[in-house]
Design a protein around this nucleic acid. Sequence first.
DNA 1: GCCGTTTTCGGCCCGACTGTTTTCAGTCG
Length: 572
Amino acid sequence: MINREIADILYEAADILELNEVEWKPRAYRKAARKIEDLNEDISNIYRDRGKKGLEEIPGIGSRIADHIIEYLETGEVGKFEKLKEKSPVKTGELVEIRGLGPKKVKKLVEQLNIKTVSDLREAVEQHQIKNLTGFGEKTEKNILKSIGMFEKSHDRMQLGKAMNLAEDVITYMKEHSDLEKIDYAGSLRRMKETIGDIDMLVIASDPDRTMNTFVSMENVERVESRGVTRSTVILKGGIHVDLRVVPAESYGAAMQYFTGSKDHNIALRDLAISKGYKLSEYGLFGKVSQEKVEGESEQGIYERLGLQYIPPELRENRGEVDIARQNSLPELVTLNDIKGDLHIHTTFSEGSDSLEDVVRAAEDMSYEYIAITDHSRSRRISKGMEIEELKLQWEEIDRISGEYDVKILKGAEVDILKDGSLDYPDEVLGGLDIVVGSVHSGFESAKEEMTERIVAALENKYLNILGHPSGRLIGKREPYNADFDMIFETVADKEKILEINSHPERLDLNDKLILQAKMFGVKFSINTDSHSVPNLDFMRFGVGQARRGWLTKDDVVNTFSYNSLKKMLKA
DNA sequence: GCCGTTTTCGGCCCGACTGTTTTCAGTCG
């Protein structure tokens, strides 16, 4: 989608301007970029239908930025920004992604040590060059080294949400421009892994040659790595590899199985095939002696022939799923359809960008039975956390519109868990809420014992219902808190609290492994989006994906319950 | 560069934290 490209250009321009100590403009650009990211509609359609006026109606976009967008839509670049990039001494994008480095420090590094890339930076750190610069020191050097490690680890992979958008754009494009019988994504994307390396796609095509032409000439292709009749690889703008394979219909199931992986799962499956006198490949399941194909068209059929229950892609990590499928005892995993509501949503009352009523309307469109409005509590000034009076105004607003919609609205809040483990509103206020999500938003570097005690103390508060983003990690940016998660999960079970599975693509917290670990304690979960805008409500599917990777069933997840059962549970 | 029933000019989320300093700059959320 072109929205993504334009947002990225504005972010980049903001970074460069900030380096040059231009004031306020960077903020304006970023605000506009954020709005464009959150748009429901393709921005080129807005321009086509309503012209410059339409663009200017988007908050944060005025006459100048609208002009830049129009220039980009018409020519594919923005002259002003191109010049800016030329004049800028440094590829900022990379360096400002390093945690601990902002524009000021980057500027110093560029000017004094001629550091332009992360690998330059690594070299300088290893030679202890930077600790001597004013403003830097021993600890900064150590922290930067740690951040470089995280950057490098995550850099060649992208977040699930971004990969999914790209894959779906490719599918839409290919369906529109080529005569296809079938097209699907496979690989780690189909397994809903939290980060994705390459995107793998399979098609059945009547005219493979034409299909490949369409694929390699898509508008967002930056480079064609290889172009064949059965397989092509392109690199999209932004550096993402997409692989397309043309597969005959009679092998489609086998190919989907093979290319979905994981590698370890496939090895386990091939072993099983051999033990049953078969050979399994991406072309099908063959009799070892007869060499005859016994299955290939259907993925389901392959599992059946091997004497297995169908194993959903999210479970294919060789974590015991093959044995359990053989015993016919795989859990019936929770699905997106089971979800009856979203219990962590922000609105304009705090840092959300859509109004309470817009959110409610969207939830109604999604046929949710209920939602919880959970804006930030007062300590969180940066996110416009609500003072008690504002919270009460929100309650009035909820009461006012409740009658007008079918969806039930729970009065909630995302309440900070303060340093000492207490919650950010007094009990009498918490008592007036239908649901309380408690989250840690500060002091991420605390020692293990301190963090564990803080969270356990919060869980002992009778008004807390859900522990929000329980590990606090940000994918590729921040490690989980140092805490004793066994003890936390045990307390959650003991106090009958709920663990959140935060669906935001940069969090996915709890992750699959911690979900599995927590499930052992018999706890309940809630899959929430932590939405900051209406389009964010769609993140739900990523959270459901992680829940499935953690082997959860409908019964494990409280927001599959009916409104009445949920209410009963929250009161108890 | 954007925005306005507190403004068409003068504001723009701002407090906590860290590590550097020796009273504060830079970064984060």
